[in-house]
Every structure is written in C-alpha cells, then in structure tokens.
Write a protein that binds this DNA or RNA. Sequence first.
DNA 1: CTGAAAGCGCTTACAG
DNA 2: CTGAAAGCGCTTACAG
Lengths: 343, 343
Amino acid sequence: MPKPGPGLRLIDVAQRAGVSLATASRALAGRDGVSEEVANRVRQVSRELGYVANPFARTLAGGASSTVGLIVHQVDDPYFSEIAGGVIKLADEQNLLVQICHSGRDPAHELRQIRNLIAQRVGIILVAGSGYHDPHAEAEARAVLAAYQQGGGRVAVIGRHALGADAVLPDNQAGGHALAAHLLELGHRRIAVVAGTPGLNTVIDRTAGIAAALSDHGLSLSGMPVVHTDFVREGGRVATDRILRDHPEVTAIIALNDAMAMGVLATLRERGIAVPDRMSVVGFDDVSVAADLAPSLTTIRLPMTDMGRMALELALKPKASRPRRRPTGHQLIVRDSTGPAIS
Amino acid sequence: MPKPGPGLRLIDVAQRAGVSLATASRALAGRDGVSEEVANRVRQVSRELGYVANPFARTLAGGASSTVGLIVHQVDDPYFSEIAGGVIKLADEQNLLVQICHSGRDPAHELRQIRNLIAQRVGIILVAGSGYHDPHAEAEARAVLAAYQQGGGRVAVIGRHALGADAVLPDNQAGGHALAAHLLELGHRRIAVVAGTPGLNTVIDRTAGIAAALSDHGLSLSGMPVVHTDFVREGGRVATDRILRDHPEVTAIIALNDAMAMGVLATLRERGIAVPDRMSVVGFDDVSVAADLAPSLTTIRLPMTDMGRMALELALKPKASRPRRRPTGHQLIVRDSTGPAIS
DNA sequence: CTGAAAGCGCTTACAG
DNA sequence: CTGAAAGCGCTTACAG
C-alpha cells in the first residue's frame, strides 16, 4: 500500500492502473500515443493516490524544469518587491516556483547568481534591475546567458540590458521628460537632479529625458547641479545636503527614484525647508508608499507588478528570432510635493 | 574536451583527475576515506574545469537538496519583504537558493504551497506570517510538515503557529503592552484598536498585550472600540471611518500593524484631523517607511530582517528533541504621531 | 584508501 | 497504442 505524497512513485501509479511505466508517464504528461481510455484511467488513479512527480528525476531524465530564477537588486526594496510580487503571482497560476536572488547592483555578483541559477537548472531566468552602461560589465553574463538559451533556457530582463534577451522596458526617458516638463511648467528654472550610481542605464535614461525637456525650454542640464550618490534612500539624504550647501538657488529637486526622494524629503523636513513652498520634490516609480509620504510625492508611475508579470509572460513564450521588447508606459502622478516656483 | 559549466559531469572531472567516479564524489563532498593528496587533486581539477554538480542528479541519488522554501503572506508587503531579505542574505552566504511563495493569509492556500514545496523536495521550509487561531486551520499542515520532518526535512516558522516546528516568536504581546502603556502615559483614556482579521494569532496576541496594559490602569478593553478589518492598509481606512462615525470621543488609535496605521493616517489627513493634536496614532512592526510618513509613526520595532535570518539559522541546525523558540525582543519607537491627550 | 556496481525516479527513443 | 530497456548524473553501500 503506497503512501501518498512524496514516496509515491510513478511505478506505483502504473501498477495500480495496470499499465507500464512508459504508458503512465505519457498519460500524465498528456503526450499522445495513449488511448483516451487508458490515459483517463491513469490520471484517475494518479489523482486518487495523490501522486506528484519527483521533479529531480523528471528533470534529470530530460523533462523541463518548472522553476524560474529571479534576480533583483534587493527584495526589500519596494520597487523590486512589487516586481517580485507580480512574478510570483503569475508563477503561482502556472504552477511554477520562483527562486529569488540578490544582485546587490554588482555586475560580478549578478554574474555569480546567474551561474548559480543555471547550475540549479532553472528553466527560466529573469533579471530585474538596471543594466550597466559599461559594456564589459555585462559581456560575460551575456555570453553565459547565450549558452544557456542555446541549451533551451529562457531569459527575460526588466530594464535596458545588453543581455540579448526579451525585455520589458520601463519608460525611463519619457518619464524623466514628463517630470522635468511638469516642473518647468510650474515655473522652476533652477532644478537639481539627485541621481543614483552613475553607471546604471536607468539613471542614464531618466537623466536623458530630463535633459531633453530642459532643452525644449532652451535650458541645458549642464547648467544644473546633478549629484550622483547611491541609488537608495540614504543617497537622497547625502545629495540633498550637498545641494543645499552648494546650490542655495535651487527651487526643485528631481530624485531619480522614490527611495532617493524619500531621503530628500527627510532631509528637507529636518532642515525645516517647506515642501513644496520653498522646494518642490519629485520621485520616480510610484512605489506604494509614495502616496503616504509627507507631503505625498509627485512621481512617475511605473506598473511594477505588471512588469514582473510581463517579464515572466515573455519568458514563457518560445524564443523569438530576435529579442522582443515590451515598453511599459508611464504616468505622471501629481501630488502635494510640487508647487509653483518661488517668484 | 569537456565544456565548462553545465554539461560538465563529475565523470569528466574524475577521468581528468585519474580517479574513479566514487572517489571524485567523495573528494568533492569532503567525505573522508580519500587521501588528502588525491582529494586535493580532484578539487583542483574540479576548480580548473569549473565543475558544478547537477543538483537534480545529486538530490535524486540521495544527497541533500540545497534549496529552501519560504512562505510569506505577500512579498510586496514590506513586513514580509524585509523578512525575505534576511532569509535571502543568509541563504546567499550559505550557497543556498530560496524559493518564495505566497500564502495570501489563506490556510488552504498555505497548505497547497507547503505541499508544492515538499513535492519540489526542498530541504527546508520556512513559514512566515501569522498562525491561525482555529486549530483546525493548521491541523493538516501540521500533519504534512510532521511527515516531512520525519523524512529529514527541516522546518522553522515565524510567529505563533501550531505547526510543531522551531519558531521565531515576535514580541507581539509585550509590544502591544508597550504601545498601550505609552498612550496611557500620555493621558489617553479613549483608545480605539484597529485590528486585523480576527482569526490571526498576531492580532490576538497584540490585542492581549493592549488589554493587559489597560487593566494595569484599571481600564478594560471591552470598554473600547475594537474594529476588525483586513490586516492591510485599506483595512486601516475602513476601520478609521467607522471609528470616527461611531466613537467621536476617541483620542488615540492603535493600529495592529504599520500597514493599517498608514491607512489610518491617510484617512485622518483627508478628514483634516490633526495628528497628534486631535488624534494620536501608533502602528506595529516599524517597516522602513514608518519614519518617513506624515507624521512619522510611533510604533513597535520588530527586527524583521534578523527574524528572517534567525528562522533560517534554526532550520539549518539539526532537529532538536522538542521545538526551539527564539523570542525577538521589541523596541518602542516614539515619533511624531503621538502626543498628549486633548484635555 | 579506492573502485565497480546498484539505484534514485523519471523520460524517451526503440521495438513490436 | 503499448512495453522493455537504456540513460539522465549523481551517491552510497559493498568489496577489495
């Protein structure tokens, strides 16, 4: 009397159904070459017994792995946790399991994680988080992933990467443009940019959008302070200190993500600088707390949860002849942190 | 000429090192019964070739699985994303991979995820999120996990569960006590509790702590409004509406987690009710944004990241004769959302 | 200390 | 349509 759950083998199901191992395997895989009648009987028995295939045996024997690897900068960064939420949601529906690892925004560590995931034989790899401007940074990862895809693995990325894979592309440039245009419309002309780590494509693209909007108004980004610090909350604090000290004429700050904007707001609050009366502040991403900050944050909304889902959807399709690209769209969300420039 | 990475098999390493498969396996596993000299040679060759064992073959053959399954309510809930961050961090250091799934605070779904994880042959299962008061809710999960542990699987939980496993226990009752005591000291006597879903142990324990503090002061919780809604931000909004409508005399609100407190603050802000001047508000958990809210939130700090790490540490140890318990401690963080009662 | 062999639980040609 | 058999890449008794 076989026990249910693990411990129960396919051979047990086969014997009980009175068929061979091979037939049982085919029936459960839904492969054809089995009569409807026999297939149904096998499935029935399998269900009754509560049989679940051993994924190790299955994968070793050549079947597909049903786990997806997801690489994020950090899961406890809201931007990435929302993406992860979207991935897990869809994975759940598809009966897939997702393994999450941290890249820590370090190309070398990211490469190590990719290798690790491949060694674990995941069937799909998803890379979220910014690509790196330096082509060398991703060259090896690209090669490793190419070999992986050659071997049937599927890859999708979120963001502008040089990884030769299907991509979900956040509207970074257009979003940066919208943000700057919003401030310019409010009359701001002395705008500082609180930018993240310089080598990240996300930072570069968002900045380019800002530059474009400025030039629409006959202004140039080179005339404005652009402060590069870590792409996290603390970086926003450091940058704000520097801006306040060196550029007292600034009336608006663009933080290149909401985490940095939170650092900006915290520092301004401590310094007693009123937002938006004396300083307007904008962020980017619209993480879910952005609406609850003091004051609530004007920002660009990116559909993070959907982005996670889209990335997995792309990876679930067979590889196309050339990498697919899915732009995300964006939305300017005007809240209380922006107001007219001081006249 | 074997290729590096996957595709490279142990037999390739063995041949190249001039030993048998068995010896190579022992050498790499660090098992004894191999001379130092031979073992070193094998390891050397393995490194040169970039060999990584196929985990499917290894696990199928009886080796231990190197992946840990983590069940959370939702990764994009900050409380859980911080826990997940702690788990992943330690897993990374130990060269383990972590699979995350959502329970959605539904015992039936949680059970399905546990089964799924077991079917995937993970070596460790971590269950985060509240246990359920109804003993029936976790009975089957308990049985399934018992069998899993019998078979060598390791389990640890975060929170008070009836799962018969090692546990990290958040200081819910003491935290609730500290919160209520803080408000009582400020002179509040009409205190409302914005509680989450009734059946959750987390809700029950935090409430019990509040009741104890009240009774220290000769008061009773039964005299105060306790509103049960969903244990998320939106639940905080709904509850606040109800409190404002039915209990205008209230001067302080205790939300049983920070997410609900954020909903409370949002509603009060919209209604133009000044915090803390007309209403004090406290939360629980101290998620990282709590300090950035408007106003910044008085709350109980739980070391979420450490809690994730501790849970994995427990699971990494061999099973004890009886379940281990690790209390987390807590800390009252007083910020701007609480002030003296209106006199 | 070392090796030949069996076995883990599947899938998939290969025959019939 | 169905089955017997080989093989996936390891680990672990079992001999020597």
